[in-house]
């Protein structure tokens, strides 16, 4: 059981990065449907950096930058040039997929250098790792996973305990009012869309560097889209995102587990479960009417100061 839960965390972490990123983006009032593309850009650039430099720090940094670069294209088009957010996001996914395929082609099927995989080997955190039950699940993992915990807590503190977090909320809820109160709306939108992209890039990097440390074209395999749905499921709350991501991580590996245990149902039918679960979430989340689980009021509306 513990072993299974620990692998749920491993499977959930890429989702956690991407979900947190999209959550922050949406808090600023933008829906970026390019998560899948940004994750792929992060995944391939992380791989190339790892293969070229064997430097784990640089690998993580470049992955974040690659995701942010994708987000920058989206930001310029939707924030400055007011393009349709849905179509721009979709295009970013198509672009990112092509980008990853092209850049990764020479590396297809090759492994990540040992220097990097060793850096991301499982390491127990002293004390925390010894807590019964919880320790082996959460605190005997790799540094990349610990990074996701830190980012998750930072996001929660930032959103709920700081001035800037409050301003961010204002931008997403009522952009015109935020603008009138003197908040630099454009800057807020740009910064948070870019942070969101960087986090999606990190999620992609986890997949290509740690989860299965070799390059495959379909590393991300729809996780970016699940992240977009998870944001709705966790009601734009970073702490809930942590648990939501682990639950979905669990769902995605359940098929293989049950197959190994000898359950007589096809693995391919079980593979549908995360996608079905996402649909059920989307259906039920539209039914919830609780105030705190609603999307930011100005989500997906491009802001035109001149049309105020």
């Amino acid at each position: 059981m513990q072993v299974f839960l620990a692998s749920c965390v491993v499977a959930g972490v890429p989702l956690l990065f991407a979900t947190l990123g999209e959550l922050i983006t949406e808090k600023a009032g933008n829906t970026n449907l390019g998560v899948e593309g940004m994750m792929l850009m992060g995944a391939v650039m992380a791989y190339v950096t790892a293969a070229g430099t064997q430097n784990p720090y640089l690998t993580v940094l470049v992955a974040a930058l690659a995701g942010a670069l994708g987000a920058l294209i989206y930001a310029v088009l939707t924030i400055s040039l007011r393009a349709n957010q849905v179509v721009t996001g979709l295009t970013l996914t198509i672009f990112g997929t092509g980008f990853a395929k092209f850049v990764g082609q020479p590396y297809l099927g090759k492994a990540v250098p040992a220097e990097v995989t060793q850096f991301f080997a499982k390491k127990s955190i002293p004390l925390l790792g010894d807590i019964p039950f919880i320790g082996p699940i959460f605190f005997r993992q790799d540094v990349f996973i610990y990074l996701s915990y830190v980012l998750c807590v930072l996001a929660a503190v930032y959103m709920y305990r700081t001035r800037m977090g409050l301003n961010l909320k204002a931008v997403g809820e009522n952009t015109a009012a935020a603008d009138a109160s003197g908040i630099n709306v454009m800057l807020y939108k740009y910064v948070h869309v870019l942070i969101g992209g960087a986090m999606a890039g990190l999620g992609g990097a986890y997949l290509s560097i740690v989860r299965i440390p070799l390059w495959q074209e379909d590393v991300v395999n729809g996780r970016g889209w699940i992240a977009v749905a998870l944001v709705i499921f966790v009601a734009w709350n970073p702490i809930k995102a942590f648990f939501g991501a682990i639950v979905f991580g669990g769902l995605s590996i359940m098929g293989m587990r049950l197959q190994v245990m000898g359950v007589g149902i096809s693995q391919y039918l079980f593979d549908m479960v995360p996608y079905l679960a996402t649909i059920i979430i989307v259906i039920f989340s539209t039914h919830k009417k609780r105030k705190e689980s609603q999307p930011p009021a100005d989500l997906s509306n491009n802001y035109f100061r001149e049309e105020r």
């Binding site: 198509i94 092509g98 092209f102």
Partner: peptide, 9 residues
């Protein structure tokens, strides 16, 4: 994949 990049651009 070059053609996907061109299409996206």
């Amino acid at each position: 994949a070059v053609s996907s990049i061109v299409q996206g651009t």
